[in-house]
Each structure stands twice: as structure tokens, then as C-alpha cells.
Design a binder for these strands. Structure first.
Length: 744
DNA sequence: CTCCCCACTCTTTTT
DNA sequence: GAGTGGGGAG
């Protein structure tokens, strides 16, 4: 079977082009995973490249797993030694071997967002920083961005100048790094950063990997950040057989440091690079693709391309606006329930995509009521749950005794009567003797003024020591069971007897079975405690999405990237939700463009039918918000958007007939202006009078001059109006005080 | 030392 | 609306 029979011309070309730098611009649904897998097979069979000389990097474990599976299928057993890995797990594997060269212990722990926040909290306390003025999140955000850009604390210091805030960040950055090192821990960004540093400082180690990975492929290249870019450059610089696949229109991770220039400047960075465009879409219908093309066309500064398909016209994209988010969710649940009942679809043919995780709640409620099986991807990560983190902290403490954060988490969990005063005494003893918190516990009797706490502390220390000894003989599931046993963790929850406690016990049972399946998957000498902890640290929630199970998938638009579903619902299509309020009010136009790319990603997930929904009114942060239809909906021309909405299965009292159509046409005619204010239709005005202006209207303020209303919040007794003033920026004000006047 | 209640913030998006 | 952190009582 030749590749020309199964691939189109461009795809086949991309497979054959194995030597030198290659950029594959792969539009949504253009079969890039197919190309990548065939390329791996081609390298091995036609070019006789050894499988272990091939490295394929993806973004998520799920993508890596899928690729692995498909490579195995077409290339057989020899493919097993091809490295298919995420950036993070690749780096961890390298660091576990060589991080000693950077002065860390190879048993380092990996800090997740929660751990980072805890550490930062401690640092702020220590540095006596008022976290009302400087928020932990602000520090972490800046540090993370610096790390993504490979900026060390020293370099940060040089750039900080005399700016007060910058100086503070610099100071905290130093301390944060110091603490991580003391705890023998790395955060997510460090995994990439330290690997880059390792290679830069140790040419012989780099050379070793350059020899090893002679052919490198990177998926989702548009989402790489500077550190990842550098890592790839280093690895590829010797043989230059680098194939990157990406789509600049699907770059949606700038907030995480993704640098779109990595893909836009690839040809400059690698002179002589081949560029192959994949523009035939095998996923969606013409209608869906047309809508997607039109929307993304509003962005500037993109590589020009236009997707096409021969999948046929298909159904138009439909848009429905509801009065409330409640009705919106009800409609979606009803729509899905109906079509499943009619055997038109299975549950897992459907996905609901939204901008923010908070939007999942209403859908969850409605799905439970309608008895629809569903799975929420993202939100609170399983491994971020308290009981799971507690038990993992025990395991971490057993594995790496210098992780103070883990020890402090569990020292009084379950309750041992060890309070804050005792902990502080241990801490200051540890600090002054420059030993870890755990080591201080072990010599607790030397701590001055420890008093009654001593026996409790000692007991805790003995407990951990005992578990450590047992860890030599027990496997991971056995050790976990032992931890649960000796701490009485589950027994305590059982005694509580609440529903919440029961849910926690269920989660613990799930953790147990994950430990068992880890042990099974790595049967043999490989199944170590460290390996288990590492696997857990690197899983994303999206990895748990199982194609074989029949449930509706609910997730954010970001999580949906790389996935496809026959029926897609994009919910919350409102200006203020999507595009987000942040993007709308930002001076930076590119923020809106990023949102638009996100919209493009959402639209192109749909294979057969795309339904967009929105609500005129919804609760956000406990406040009622009135939002106009999303500008993205308005960017879809009539020819792709459903003219008449199927009302037969719609329970709303007034079917959107001629009136509805008229309204649709009305807002479509004015491309960017918001529709007529909803407030006018709102009868109850506790405020005496309704507002004479609405979202999108031009208003005048006696101090700030003219501006445009971007949002109105019903605060109960008054309206909170957000206005974007010319020359004065965005202001929030109360309608009763502001005395805004409508300007025609 | 623990528990409970109140006030406050938060929402973009995540490996 | 929910989760967190601080303060105060027991």
C-alpha cells in the first residue's frame, strides 16, 4: 500500500520530505496527525532510520497516546522505541537523569499550580508583603512569564530598573527560586527551562541527545513558547531534521507564553526550510468551514490560507439567543436528549464548548435533571482535590523528604493536635539551622520552647520513618493502602458520614485504582513511587477523555483544541463572555484576535452540525449581567447561518418566527454595533426609571466626555454602567450618580 | 488548638 | 455563587 493511495498530494509530499527543516501549515481537520504518523512510518521503512532516533513532541498526553497508538498500528512492533512524548514528560525524563549537573537531586518533585501558590503565600508572609497590594498570583504570573522567556532572576534584575513593582517581583523571584531549590522541587515552567539550561551548560549532554534524536517532529507548533522553541532549536541544531506542524490560526495560548512568531518566522529562523500547506479539510461540512473562514478572516497578520472541503454543503450553523443562561442550558440538554432518544446520535457525538469553566455548572445541573451522561473536562482537576493532594503529599514526603510544602501539608492532617505555633517553631529552627522542615522534625527535642508539641511532632516523625522503611518492600498500591491505614484518613471520613465525605472516599478509591493500573502498566522493576508521582504531576484533565464511553463532553474552548465531534454546541456566545470582557476592554487589539482564533478553533471542532447559543442575561460572579450577541456570531454571513430555527422541539412560549428573523437581520446589518439595549424591554425598574441608553450606545459624562457603553450590570438598586471613554479609558459607574446622557 | 462565621475576591483560558 | 482567609469564641 503506497502513501499516494491514502494521502493527498500535499500530505504525501510532507511525508516524503524527511531531510532538513520543514514547516507544515496544517489547517484545522486537514489530517496532520495522519501525516505525522505516516511520516514516522516512512522514516523507518523507507529511510531506514532507527526508531529510537525519532522524536515526536505533542502538547498533551492524550495527543501523544493517540499518536503512539496510530504509529504502532501502521509501523508495528519496531515503532515501540520511537519517542512520542509531551514537552514536559520529555524534559522530566532528561532531567531525572542529568539534573545532578545543575545541583538538584534526581528525585526532585514537581509543583503544580496549587503548590506554587502555597509556596508563594509563605514567601509573601516571610517577606512581609501585603498580599492586598501585591497579589501572589501577580508574582507567580510574572515569574512564569519570565521563565517562559528564559529570563533568570539575574536578568530580571537587570531589566527591572528602578520601578518599585519590578524590584519587588525581582526580589520575590530570587526567593522563589531559592525555596524551590531548597525543596528540591521544580515547577512546570522549570521543566523546560532547566532542560534548556542543562543543555546550554553541558554540551556533551546536549550532543548525546542530538545524536539520539536525529529526526524531530513538533505538533501544535503555534503554541510553543520561547523556552520550548529554544529547546527544540538546541536539539535540532546538529542534524536540522526538524519538522514542525501547526496552524497560526489556532494559536490560543499566548497567555501562557506561546509565541506566535515561532511559527510565523520559521522560514527566517531556518533558511531553506520547506513549507507545505494542508488546506483540504476532511472533518467538517462546507457550511461550518465557510463560517470558520469568514470569522478568522477578520484577523490581520496571519498566514493567508483558506480551507476547503468536498464533504458537501451540510447544515447551516444555527444561532439561538435565550432570555437566560438557564434556558440556554435547558435547550441544549433537551436538544441532545431528543436526538439520542430518536437514535439520531449517541451521547458521545456531542460536545458543549464554553469560554469559562464556570459556565459548566448550569449544564451540569440540567444534564443531571435530564438524566444525560456527561463528563466535564477541566475545572477542578482530580489531582487538585484536597483528599488526593493530602495522600499524595504523604507519598511525596516518603519519596523526597526535603519537600517542605508536602510535609507541612500533612503534619496536622488528619488532626494530630499540632497547631500553628508549634509549626512556626519547627520552621524557625529549620531556617536557623539551614535544614529542611522534615529534618527539623526528626530532631524536634532540640527545638527550644517546643513544649507539649514535642511528643506529637516526634510521633509524626516516627510515622513517616516507618512508612519510609516500608516503602522499600511495598509496591505503590500497597504503600498507598498503608498510608491510608496508618493515618486513619478514610476511617475519619467514614465517621463524618456526610455526602461530601462519601464523595471524598470515592475519590480516594479512584486514586487507589489509578495506583493499581500504574503498577500494572509498569509491571517489572519500572513501577517506582517516583514514577507514579511524576505521571500524576504531568497529566492534564483532557487526557481522561475516553472515546469509548458514551457521554456528552463539556469543556472550555481551549481544552477542545485537537478534538472533533459530530455535534458541537458553542454556548455563551455573548459579547462580554466570548469575546471576554477583558479582551473587549483591552487597548491591545491582538487580544481580541486571540479570542477570534479561539472562536475559529471552536467552530472547526464540528463535523456535522454546529449550534451557537447565547443568553441575554446571565449571572456572573453573583451579579446579573446583560450581554449583547457575540460579535463573532455577527461575523458569520447569512449564507452560513441558519435562517429559520427549528422551533418544533422548542418549549419557549413565543416561537421565534418572523419577528426573530427580522431581529437577526437587524443586527447583521450593523456589523460591529451592538443590538438595541435589552433594558428597554425590561419592565421592572426598581430604580424609578429605566436607562435611556444601552450597551453599545454613545453617552456623555460631564467629566469624562463622550464614550461607548460596553456593559451594564443590574445591581438591584441601581445599574452599574461600564463606559469606554474617549481619552479616559474604561470606567465603571453607577447610573444614578453618573447622570449619563445618551448622544445620538 | 479547633471550629465556626463573616467578609472578601474572583473569572478568562492550562501543560 | 463559591471558595478562601482571617478573626474570635470555646
Amino acid at each position: 500500500m503506497g502513501i499516494d493511495d491514502t494521502l493527498n498530494k500535499e500530505q504525501a509530499e510532507a511525508v516524503r520530505c524527511t531531510e532538513g527543516p520543514l514547516l507544515i501549515l496544517a489547517g484545522a481537520g486537514s489530517g496532520k496527525t495522519r501525516v505525522l504518523t505516516y511520516r514516522v512510518a516512512w522514516l523507518m521503512t523507507e529511510r531506514e532510520v532507527q526508531p529510537w532516533n525519532i522524536l515526536a513532541i505533542t502538547f498533551t498526553n492524550k495527543a501523544a497516546g493517540e499518536m503512539r497508538e496510530r504509529v504502532d498500528k501502521i509501523a508495528g512492533a519496531q515503532a515501540a522505541s520511537v519517542w512520542v512524548s509531551t514537552f514536559h514528560s520529555l524534559c522530566v525524563r532528561i532531567l531525572r537523569r542529568y539534573i545532578g549537573a545543575l545541583g538538584y537531586d534526581t528525585r526532585f518533585t514537581i509543583y503544580d499550580a496549587d503548590d506554587q501558590k502555597n509556596l508563594m503565600k509563605q514567601i509573601c508572609r516571610k517577606k512581609e508583603i501585603d498580599t492586598k497590594v501585591f497579589k501572589e498570583k501577580m508574582f507567580l504570573g510574572n515569574i512564569s512569564r519570565a521563565k517562559d522567556e528564559l529570563i533568570s532572576p539575574e536578568e530580571y534584575e537587570m531589566n527591572a530598573g528602578s520601578d518599585f513593582t519590578q524590584k519587588k517581583i525581582e526580589e520575590i523571584y530570587y526567593e522563589y527560586e531559592k525555596q524551590l531549590k531548597l525543596n528540591n522541587a521544580l515547577d512546570f515552567d522549570d521543566l523546560i527551562l532547566k532542560t534548556v539550561r542543562l543543555f546550554e551548560k553541558n554540551p556533551e549532554i546536549l550532543d548525546n541527545y542530538q545524536e539520539r534524536f536525529r529526526y524531530i517532529m513538533v505538533d501544535e507548533y503555534q503554541d510553543t513558547n520561547t523556552a520550548q522553541f529554544r529547546l527544540v532549536s538546541l536539539l535540532a541544531s546538529k542534524y536540522k531534521n526538524l519538522c514542525v506542524v501547526g496552524d497560526d490560526d489556532q494559536s490560543i495560548y499566548r497567555f501562557r507564553g506561546a509565541n506566535i512568531r515561532n511559527i510565523l518566522n520559521f522560514e527566517k529562523e531556518y533558511p531553506g526550510a520547506r513549507v507545505i500547506k494542508l488546506e483540504q479539510n476532511y472533518r467538517s461540512t462546507e457550511m461550518i468551514l465557510g463560517a470558520a473562514n469568514e470569522v478568522i478572516h477578520n484577523n490581520k497578520g496571519r498566514k493567508d490560507k483558506s480551507l476547503w472541503t468536498d464533504n458537501g454543503r451540510g447544515e447551516a450553523v444555527s444561532y439561538r439567543q435565550f432570555g437566560t443562561a438557564y434556558e440556554e442550558a435547558e435547550f441544549v440538554a433537551g436538544d441532545i436528549a431528543m436526538s439520542v432518544r430518536n437514535s439520531e446520535r449517541d451521547y458521545n457525538d456531542n460536545a458543549i464548548l464554553y469560554r469559562t469553566n464556570a459556565q459548566s455548572r448550569l449544564f451540569e445541573e440540567k444534564f443531571i435533571a435530564a438524566n444525560i451522561p456527561y463528563k466535564i473536562v477541566g475545572g477542578v482537576n482530580f489531582y487538585a482535590r484536597r483528599e488526593i493532594k493530602d495522600l499524595l503529599a504523604y507519598l511525596k514526603t516518603i519519596e523526597n523528604g526535603v519537600d517542605d510544602l508536602a510535609v507541612q501539608r500533612i503534619i496536622n492532617v488528619p488532626r494530630r493536635g499540632i497547631g500553628q505555633t508549634t509549626i512556626l517553631k519547627v520552621q524557625s529552627y529549620a531556617d536557623s539551622h539551614e535544614i529542611s522542615f522534615y529534618d527539623a522534625i526528626l530532631e524536634a527535642r532540640l527545638i527550644p520552647g517546643i513544649g507539649r508539641g514535642l511528643s506529637k511532632i516526634e510521633k509524626f516523625g516516627e510515622l513517616i520513618q516507618k512508612l519510609r522503611r516500608e516503602s522499600d518492600t511495598l509496591d505503590v498500591p500497597g504503600l498507598l493502602a498503608e498510608v491510608i491505614e496508618v493515618t486513619g484518613y478514610v476511617i475519619e471520613l467514614e465517621a463524618e458520614g456526610t455526602d461530601e465525605a462519601k464523595a471524598r472516599i470515592e475519590n480516594i478509591d479512584e486514586l487507589k485504582s489509578k495506583a493499581v493500573s500504574y503498577a500494572e502498566a509498569h509491571s517489572g522493576e519500572e513501577a517506582t513511587l517516583g514514577g507514579f508521582l511524576e505521571e500524576i504531576a504531568l497529566v492534564a484533565d483532557i487526557d481522561s477523555l475516553d472515546n469509548d464511553q458514551d457521554y456528552v463532553a463539556l469543556m472550555t474552548l481551549h481544552s477542545a483544541k485537537g478534538l472533533e465531534f459530530p455535534y458541537v454546541y458553542m454556548a455563551g456566545m455573548e459579547d462580554g463572555m466570548f469575546p471576554s470582557y477583558m479582551a473587549i476592554s483591552s487597548d491591545d487589539r491582538t487580544e481580541l484576535e486571540e479570542e477570534r482564533r479561539l472562536c475559529y478553533v471552536g467552530i472547526t471542532r464540528a463535523k456535522k452540525r454546529l449550534t451557537m447559543t447565547g443568553a441575554r442575561c446571565r449571572m456572573v460572579n453573583g451579579q446579573q449581567q446583560y450581554n449583547p450577541t457575540s460579535r463573532f456570531v455577527k461575523e458569520i454571513p447569512e449564507e452560513y447561518l441558519a435562517e429559520d430555527v427549528d422551533v418544533s422541539r422548542e418549549p419557549t412560549p413565543e416561537p421565534p418566527s418572523a419577528k426573530y428573523r427580522q431581529k437577526m437581520n437587524e443586527f447583521r446589518r450593523k456589523p460591529y454595533a451592538a443590538p438595541k439595549p435589552y433594558e428597554k424591554q425590561e419592565p421592572k425598574t426598581l430604580k424609578g426609571v429605566g436607562l435611556e441608553y444601552g450597551v453599545g450606545d454613545r453617552v456623555a459624562h460631564k467629566k469624562f466626555g463622550e464614550g461607548t457603553v460596553t456593559n451594564i450590570n443590574d445591581m438591584g438598586r441601581d445599574y452599574e454602567v461600564t463606559v469606554d471613554f474617549v481619552g479616559h479609558g474604561v470606567k465603571k459607574m453607577f447610573a444614578a450618580f453618573a447622570k449619563l446622557r445618551k448622544v445620538e
